[in-house]
Design a protein around this nucleic acid. Structure first.
Lengths: 210, 210
DNA sequence: AACTGTGAAGTTTTTCACAGCC
DNA sequence: GGCTGTGAAAAACTTCACAGTT
């Protein structure tokens, strides 16, 4: 995907690490302290060999004969994924979806903090959602630069998503989580991830006969 | 993935079809009538050969020398994905997220219709959201059976997601779109797709140095 | 001239299977 | 006995490159 010293590690492996971490969080909550590639694989529907191979890219995190210390592995994966310190995230588009995102408590636990909110609607600007006040898009460049924010979520209607993206990129954003059902074009060095529930649904209906 | 007469088509191909369809919708909106694997690939960051190969699994949709008729290809992809007729979907969990999902207009255009809402909170039961009244979980089995619903979205807090899933599966649901940040276990023949924004963010931070 | 559809080649990803360790 | 880490083998996936069509 991007090129910054991680050349040799397949992106597909990186994509699985957050899944492993999520499962480990769960196991830890259940009070378990040790797990194995087999147990993890069983829970995730992934082969144990694949889990061992994936983890082996980053060093030996387990103990032969024993398995993996959950707390230790969580810590190591957080380090690999670069979420040891919390990341600040900008959110653009404070409609129903944006509000739900702003209220969602699941980000904080897992390395992310929504740091500022933007909307183009003058009626919304100045309103507060959670701890923050909605700012106009004209404040975006300055706010992102002054807080040194590198990640953003886009929750505007599809027709505006590309222009918002261009604005974010110009402001220095390096990663965009896009909720609009549209493919974004970004320059090299900027990453995009997509959240489109309909894609998930359509993928399932293929297998439903009738 | 599942086994029902589609044995030979790789799941990874199925996963790309909704992306192609989304891009075609966009092109159609822009008023374009014909496209090529090259143009589509350029927009999506996918090689033209891959697009042609993917589509070739289902027959020849294009014309040599010309490209693909957009309307025709949309129609064919909708047929392949089994979204020619609209699917009814149940939504469980009507918190902030569930409400945002219920209000989201992007489902209808693309083959899905939210047909009933459920929540376990007695204070929410009876409230209306959009066109529907929130029903208690005890109504779920009967409602799903009588309306012959096969798909559901789960938007409850993580600790309840597995039990809700079990209830849905028992009621005959065959595909679940899970918004809770937890891996669900389901019997063979039931599919699950995950929506977890944090996974997308964590995947990006890996590549951000610092 | 431009583009599709497709075998064949090339590359990546997954699984196997086992040595080494607890 | 049970488990990891890992080369080697197998499988899956992507790209190449071109014959065939408009």
């Amino acid at each position: 995907m991007a090129s910054n010293g991680h050349e040799s590690i397949p992106d597909i492996v990186i994509g699985r690490l957050p899944i492993y971490l999520r499962a480990l969080n769960r196991l830890a909550e259940e009070g378990q302290e040790i797990t194995s590639s087999h147990e993890l694989g069983q829970r995730l529907g992934i082969s144990s060999a694949q889990i061992r191979k994936d983890l082996s890219h980053f060093g030996g995190f387990g103990k032969q004969g024993t398995g993996y210390q959950i707390g230790y592995l969580q810590e190591k994966l957080r380090k690999v994924l670069n979420i040891e310190q919390e990341w600040e995230v900008a959110l653009v588009g404070i409609g129903d979806l944006g509000k739900a995102i702003a209220h969602y408590r699941g980000f904080g636990d897992r390395g992310f903090h929504i740091a500022c909110l933007f909307d183009s609607d003058p009626d919304k600007v100045g309103q507060t959602v959670g701890d923050f006040t909605i700012q106009p898009l004209s404040d975006l460049p300055a706010a992102i630069e002054s807080k040194n924010i590198r990640l953003a979520m886009v929750a505007v209607p599809a027709p505006y998503a590309q222009e918002v993206t261009d604005l974010l990129v110009k402001a220095g954003i390096k990663g965009i989580l896009n909720y609009a059902p549209i493919n974004l074009s970004v320059p090299a060095g900027v990453q995009v991830q997509y959240i489109d529930p309909v894609v998930g649904l359509q993928r399932m209906t293929f297998y439903l006969n009738d």
